[in-house]
């Protein structure tokens, strides 16, 4: 489903963020990517949606190499992936509804469809009553849930979550983790990058550990 084959990423300023990374994640799996701050977790996830391209090596998503695809093919790759960004990337000028609806507009769904699906997903993340609020009025945890809703609303095959419990108190954090597990239970491949080791140890899932851009463990399928 997701395969990294000898992948290295060196940024243009010379930072070697990832070096010689090899692993594969099967369809339907729930995997953690852990490591200290600056280890390269976000960089790794960005490579999967081709926000960044690897300097060396090859990456496969659904058996297709995404390293050599044309720019024109990038949107369809991104549409099958839901991405919960570490910094949320919510649009301040749009309401919660509009932010979440954006994902569906991009895939070309009709108005009625969008209204139903957004209502449903906001219900799932427990934000129904904030549907018409603007992000600037939301708490950190609420923003995080909007980001999750936006990543989920189109029912992607793959969900990438970058530090999804970062801004949340432990109790709410657990709710989010349960939610991610539930989504995984529906057949979605879930990849969670985090340095919250409590969460990791409580769930008996595979943990791909990276440190200073190198794979430490978790390579095996």
């Amino acid at each position: 489903m997701i395969v990294f084959d000898n992948v290295s990423k060196k940024y243009s300023d010379g930072t070697l963020a990832l070096e010689d990374i090899n692993f594969s994640i099967k369809g339907g799996e729930f995997v953690f990517i852990t490591g200290p701050s600056g280890a390269g977790k976000t960089s790794l996830l960005k490579l999967i949606i081709r926000e960044e391209t690897p300097s060396l090596g090859e990456i496969f998503v659904d058996e297709n190499s995404i390293t050599k695809i044309k720019p024109k093919e990038v949107p369809s790759l991104r549409r099958k992936i839901g991405f919960i960004f570490q910094d949320f990337k919510l649009l301040e000028s749009l309401t919660v509804f509009e932010n979440v609806a954006l994902t569906l507009e991009v895939v070309g769904r009709g108005d009625k469809d969008i209204k139903d699906a957004v209502g449903e997903v906001l219900n799932l993340v427990g934000l129904s009553e904030k549907i018409n609020s603007f992000p600037s009025l939301l708490s950190g945890g609420e923003k995080q849930r909007v980001a999750i809703a936006r990543a989920l609303v189109h029912e992607p095959k793959i969900l990438l979550a970058d530090e999804p419990t970062g801004m949340i108190d432990p109790a709410t954090g657990w709710e989010i983790v349960n939610l991610l597990e539930k989504i995984n239970g529906w057949g979605t491949t879930v990849v969670v990058a985090t340095h919250n080791l409590d969460v990791v140890s409580s769930l008996n899932k595979r943990d791909i550990k990276i440190e200073k851009g190198r794979l430490v463990s978790g390579k095996k399928i």
Binding site: K72, V74, R79
Partner: peptide, 16 residues
Amino acid sequence: KEEIVVMRLIGASDWH
């Protein structure tokens, strides 16, 4: 600008 960046990241096509 910001909206365009986000739309790109969630898979909007060029013409969209």
